[in-house]
């Protein structure tokens, strides 16, 4: 088991999957923080005064940690943040879905669609967790610039 977890290639695959996902996810939020802020507001989980700062900083954290994973720069810190963010998204999505189903809101422009995409995001989030666990445990430091 240890040998599998420490495998350089497996570690590289996990780094690429999580890294590319986070960099990709950060782009539209960095370009359009206003829309992202509104998305955060819809969850009703963050105090109003903090929403804009969160909408500004979190995408850059996603981007930096994604780059950190792929290039192996500040690897441990990047893995830690990505773990925290995956958990935050998980909690937010579960809470949104549970409330969304009871709200039966025809809103969000397309309600059915919004709930569907929350489910898809939740499943995607869960699929990423094993890769995160592997990176938390691995001792591989191959192909890293400055772990």
């Amino acid at each position: 088991m240890r040998a599998v977890i420490d495998n350089d290639w497996l570690t590289m695959v996990s780094r690429l999957i999580l890294g590319i996902t986070f960099i990709y996810a950060s782009f539209y939020k960095i370009i359009d923080p206003g829309s992202f802020a509104k998305s955060i507001w819809y969850y009703h989980m963050v105090p109003g005064s903090l929403i804009n700062m969160m909408a500004l900083v979190m995408p850059w954290l996603e981007f930096l940690c994604g780059v950190g994973l792929i290039l192996g720069i500040y690897f441990r810190g990047s893995v830690a943040w990505i773990g925290v963010m995956l958990m935050v998204f998980l909690i937010a999505l579960v809470s949104a879905i549970s409330r969304g189903l009871s709200i039966d809101c025809g809103c969000f422009k397309a309600a059915a669609d919004a709930t569907g995409s929350a489910w898809r995001s939740l499943i995607f989030d869960i699929v990423l967790i094993p890769f995160l666990v592997q990176l938390l445990l691995t001792r591989s430091r191959r192909w890293m610039i400055r772990p």
């Binding site: 923080p33 995408p59 850059w60 930096l64 950190g68 441990r76 810190g77 990047s78 830690a80 943040w81």
Partner: peptide, 20 residues
């Protein structure tokens, strides 16, 4: 790990404010 995490966060804050 904690030190790296703090540096990453600070860097994200600086980038976010500068780009914004």
């Amino acid at each position: 790990m904690v030190r790296q995490a703090i540096i990453l966060l600070l860097l994200a804050v600086v980038l976010a404010l500068a780009v914004n």
